[in-house]
Each structure stands twice: as C-alpha cells, then as structure tokens.
Design a protein around this nucleic acid. Structure first.
Lengths: 189, 189
DNA sequence: TCGAAAGTTGTCCATATGGACAGTCCAAAC
DNA sequence: GTTTGGACTGTCCATATGGACAACTTTCGA
C-alpha cells in the first residue's frame, strides 16, 4: 500500500484522530481539524478527497498504532494474549483513552460507510483469528478450558475486551483489569 | 418522574431514536427528526428545550424499552440472567439492531454530555448491580464459579454483552449466541 | 358560549459547513 | 536563471443547521 505521506498530511491525520475522540465522528468538521493541526482550512481539500477519507484514514491509523497485531501473533498461549490485552487496557486507561474512543466511533461509523467497514472488519477479523488459533492450540494441549469452540472463545474474548473499553469510558472507576483477570481465571479452569 | 407525553412529542422521540441509529448522534439534525416524524420543523423547538434534550430523551427511552430491568430483577440465578440476555440479543439481532446502535451511541455521547452521562451511568450501574447480586447469591449457594468477585463477574458479563452487540453490528455472521453460551458454560464451571 | 391556556405551524436569521479554486511559494531539474 | 510541478493558502459560495418567534388552531373548564 503506497503512502504518500507529507508532514502536513500527517498533522491533519493526528488532529483528526483527536477530534473524533473528543467530539464524535459526525461532529468533526474539516475546519476544526485544520485548526487543531495549525493549518489553514484549504489544506484538507488538497490532501484528502473529502472529509470521510480524512476521518477514515485517521481512525485506522490510530487503531493500528495502538494495538499492533504483530505483538499478539508472537504469543504462545491464550493466557499470554489475555495478559497482553490487559496491559493494552491499562495503557489506554492511564492515557487519554484516545484509542478506545476512536475505535468505537470507527466501528459505529463503518456500518454507514462500506469502504471504512471493509477496513475495520478486516482488522477485527484478524484479531479474532489470532485469538481463535491460540484457543485451539491451548485446547489441544489441554492447558485451558475445552468446553466451547475456539471460535466462540475468541469471539467472547474480543467482545469482552471491547465492551470493557466501552464501559470504562463511561465509568472511570470501573475495574476492567479485574474483569479481564476474572475472564482469564475462568478460561484457566 | 413526570412525563408530560403528547402524541407529537412521542412521535419526535421515536423518530429521533431511529435517526440516531441510522446516522449517528452527531449527524442527526432537528429538521430530519421532524421530517421523519411527519411534523414541521418548529415542533422540535416547542416540545424540547434543544437538540441535545431531544436526543437524550430518545436514547434513554429506546434503551429502557428494549431491556426492561424489571425482568432481570425477577430472576433467581446468573444462569437465568444469561439466558434472558441471550434472548434479548437474539431479539435485537433479528430486529433492526436499533437498540444496539442507539445504546452505543448514547454511551459515547455521554462522555461529552454530563447530563446524559448521569442518566446512562445510572442505568448501566443498575444492571451491573442486579448481576452482581445474582453472582453473589450463586457463589454463596455454590452453584456457580466462585474464583472471582461477584463485581468482577458482573462487570465481565455486562461488558461481554455490550461488546457482542458492538461486534455483531459490524459482522452479521458473528455468532454471538455461541459466545454467550460459552460464557455461560464457563461460569457454570 | 366565551376565553384562556396549551398545542402547533411556517418563516426568519445568524452562523457553520464542505468543497472548490485561483493564486502563491518553493525546491529541484534543466 | 529559468522552468516546472507539487505543496500550500486565502477566499468564496451554495447549502444546512439550530433556534426563535409571531401567528394560528385546538382544547376544555367556567
């Protein structure tokens, strides 16, 4: 995938990511993005073919940077994967929650935008595939719960993680690490 | 809570609920709500003090109608609760997904709107409280997993349910019932 | 029947938004 | 030193948006 990155283009993308998190996809304006980036309004028209392209590129960028799937693929067991996800969750919560916000906004928006949908769906599918493979391996080795299919377990884990992100956004007191730990101990049998 | 319902007001609320699901909170316009309801634009100004109040009322209404907490409170065990949630999930998936969409939109929006936040937070808190009480009772009776605190279990269940809604929106093929079943069998030990 | 209060409607306005584009700047190629 | 092509900027415009409000209609108790 060719990426004709310009410094200006990158600044717009970063600004757009922030603003999606702050105001929600539908309320981000091209003007506000330019202003946040310290650039004139016209810059948007030049670097992107439209508002939707700008926001989509920005969202995918944020997500890929926050949850590098390569890290997940390198692991050997579901236990390790859950530990990594717990770490990601702590990072996100201690930070500005940018990822959680943008991620959820992107999922919602993708049901209205076929192009974005394709990109986000592929992303989530790949996470679930990695988790399912780990679950399958664990089950085969008998080191983990075997009462449900690896697919179902993977779906459950991915959903729980996303749901915790969502709820944590609402209630900062929510102990999502404890919930992940509970899931881990459940899976360990 | 007093509810000065008018037929007109209700039509606006229903229309607003639909439009939040279709276009996202930030892109719903007062004009589009009025048009969907078959009413003149001015009706919005009369019945609501502003756009935000209209959308907030609409979102809370949709949620309360779809997930009547009274049904959950009437149950005796976590097992029953999960079964009920599975049923809700099937209903939502077979339907138009209105609830899932509006629910998530409302959660996201509530981080930007203190008034809405208070309402949504109270709602979710009450669901978690009911689940935690069931978990506590089950653990005491020894009929269910006791390796984690009732609070953590409740948080996990609520998050998993919401996350499944979210992912199901993206991927209609996703078998969220299987994932819920997996969670249930995990909890059953 | 009358009158007030509540409900409803069409219209107006200040402001914002997305996109387009002509013009400017600049560094590298010739 | 001039040309050239891309990067960038300021401005303009058609359209939309939220909210206000005066005028009009319906409801209903006295």
């Amino acid at each position: 995938m060719k990426r004709s990155t310009t410094a200006t283009r990158d600044r717009l993308l970063r600004a757009a990511g922030q603003l999606i998190a702050e105001f929600g996809w539908g309320r981000v304006t091209t003007r506000s993005v330019a202003e946040r980036a310290g650039l004139p309004h016209g810059a948007v028209s030049y670097h992107f073919s439209g508002k939707q392209e700008l926001l989509s590129d920005a969202a995918v960028l944020v997500f890929e940077q926050a949850f590098p799937i390569a890290e997940l693929e390198a692991l050997g067991s579901l236990e390790d994967a859950l530990a990594l996800m717990e770490r990601w969750m702590e990072e996100a919560e201690s930070g500005d929650l940018l990822v959680a916000e943008v991620g959820v906004e992107a999922i919602l928006e993708s049901s209205r935008d076929p192009v974005l949908r394709e990109r986000v769906d592929a992303l989530l599918r790949s996470y679930r595939a990695v988790l399912a493979e780990l679950a399958r391996r664990d089950a085969a080795a008998g080191t983990s719960f075997a009462g449900a299919s690896p697919q179902a377990v993977a779906t459950l884990i991915a959903a729980a993680a996303d749901g915790l992100f969502l709820h944590a956004r609402l209630d900062p007191e929510l102990d999502s690490a404890a919930a992940m730990a509970a899931l881990r101990s459940l899976l360990a049998g």
